[in-house]
């Protein structure tokens, strides 16, 4: 399993792996916002956490369709499925998701504080947003794995995966942003939405791999 994690992590970082695409997209989206919104610093700092979350959500969805498709194209997926007796398929899926998250989404979380400066956010807001991204983004990858598994046999499944997955990630977005706002303002709570966010991630850590593994088993013909 460690071997699988290392392989997927390496692949994401090598040429054509797509780890950089997500972060460049994130950077582009957030850089453009101040130009679109105008030089209203108060407004920017108010919408900052939401913009960071939306940017990170879309960037995290970018490379997801290749999660299993690359393995299917070169025949590795058959062998991963055949090894189900040694490595339960859902655990294989979970490890692939973790490697994908570490290589392509974790850099977004790390870049978020820097981009938060562009949005005139306070240190508290930046910290809270980065923390909620850290806790919430694994859920996006795990939900995305189900979509990626369903669309694995479609040659141009990329957009389809995003469309299938996006509605399911809305709760992650809602609770992520509201926890970040909770940390910024006195009136809104932080802990409750943050805990729900953590619960969503844990919930999909179980449901996501199970559902994706089931979909993959039926993809082998």
């Amino acid at each position: 399993m460690t071997a699988l994690f290392i392989r997927d992590f390496r692949l994401a970082l090598r040429a054509g792996g797509g780890a950089l695409v997500g972060i460049l997209f994130f950077l582009a989206v957030i850089t453009v916002v101040p130009f679109g919104v105008g030089p209203d610093l108060a407004l920017l700092s108010r919408i900052g956490p939401a913009m960071l979350w939306i940017g990170a959500l879309l960037a995290a969805l970018l490379g997801l369709d290749r999660l299993f498709q690359a393995d299917r194209d070169d025949g590795s997926l058959d062998l991963l499925i055949m090894a189900a007796d040694r490595h339960m398929l859902s655990v294989t899926v979970l490890v692939k998701c973790l490697a994908h998250w570490t290589a392509t989404v974790l850099p977004l979380v790390i870049a978020a504080p820097l981009l938060g400066l562009f949005m005139n956010m306070t240190p508290t807001a930046i910290g809270a947003t980065a923390l909620t991204l850290l806790v919430g983004t694994p859920a996006i990858t795990l939900i995305g794995a189900v979509g990626a598994a369903l669309a694995v046999s479609l040659p141009r499944g990329g957009l389809l995966v995003s469309v299938i997955v996006l509605p399911l990630t809305i709760p992650v977005l809602i609770f992520g942003v509201s926890a970040a706002y909770g940390a910024m303002t006195e009136t809104a709570p932080f802990l409750a939405p943050f805990l729900i966010l953590a619960a969503i991630t844990l919930f999909f850590a179980v449901i996501g791999p199970l559902a994706a593994a089931t979909a993959l088993k039926f993809s082998t013909d």
């Binding site: 025949g75 058959d78 062998l79 040694r86």
Partner: peptide, 24 residues
């Protein structure tokens, strides 16, 4: 199968080492 189940971006050794570790 028809496909070789190897990753073009990884070296030959990395590919084989992965399958050895994964297949046991």
């Amino acid at each position: 199968g028809h496909q070789n189940a190897m990753k073009p971006a990884l070296s030959v050794r990395e590919n084989l080492a992965f399958w050895q570790a994964f297949n046991g």
